[in-house]
Amino acid sequence: MGLKRSEFLFFAWRNRKLRIGVSIVIFFVILAIVGPFLTKYPPNEYVEAAAFPPSKEHWFGTTIFGQDVFSQFVHGLKATFVVGLIGGTIGTFLGILIGFTAGYRGGMVDEVLNMVTNIVLIIPTLAVLIIIAAYLTVRGILTESVLIGLTAWPWAARAIRAQTFSLRVRDYVDLARMSGVGSMKIIFGEIAPNMMSYLLLVYILQFGGAVLNAAALDFIGLGPTNTISLGLMMNYALLWAALPLGIWWWFVPPGLAITAIVGALYVTNVGLDEVFNPKLREM
């Protein structure tokens, strides 16, 4: 980073959006880690009478089957973070690798990579996921995340390629080339830092996309067979008519959590943009 670490932290701390965004994300991460220890109920066990509203015994109430919602929630939260993290990371990593290479090299390399990207792009992702998921009889969160990551990168690659294309002709990139700096160093020393907030936005989209894709898979019964996730919770709630029955405590916590996490990441992104960009910073 060009900013010294202390300077970066100083400006980062001064930025309210960044503080709020990061706080919310950290809050949920902590909840996902600590939560399972706060509850004595296993997430999928039938422990109580059906559809109990929130109480001292069951903080978030129980499902229509009598499962503890809080327990499901914190375990689901963990699963959601795992999917987002692994799926988002794989998608972003592939996007960065292919986007930067195509954008900086240009010419033939770009054309070939562009073709590959377009091919992956037009293959209906969900259909592929369904086929693969159906083929695997035992499915875990990890498999799901990897599958999602492997199909989600084209959008990221395209966006990063376009940005790289416009940045590589900048005068400061030429100046670095005239200083004898190598391609890799130029990409990661000159071009990437200017896209930091952009890459983060890409990561957020990949993260959110992975979470949503996971929910969609869960909905059609192709999700993990051996655990619970926020997506699974909402879909069970929907499936068992929690909405018309007024069992709001079943679907509100997972829905709210997904919204809050993605929203907070977005606010973080805007805040980071202000921190990275010295012109915005001085206002």
């Binding site: 060009g2 005068d171 400061y172 030429d174 000159e190 830092p193 960009n277 010295p278």
Partner: peptide
């Protein structure tokens, strides 16, 4: 070489 736009020759974040 030195180019036309002095601001464009500097990476704005450094």
């Amino acid at each position: 070489g030195v180019f036309q736009d002095p601001f464009a020759s500097f990476n704005p974040i450094f």
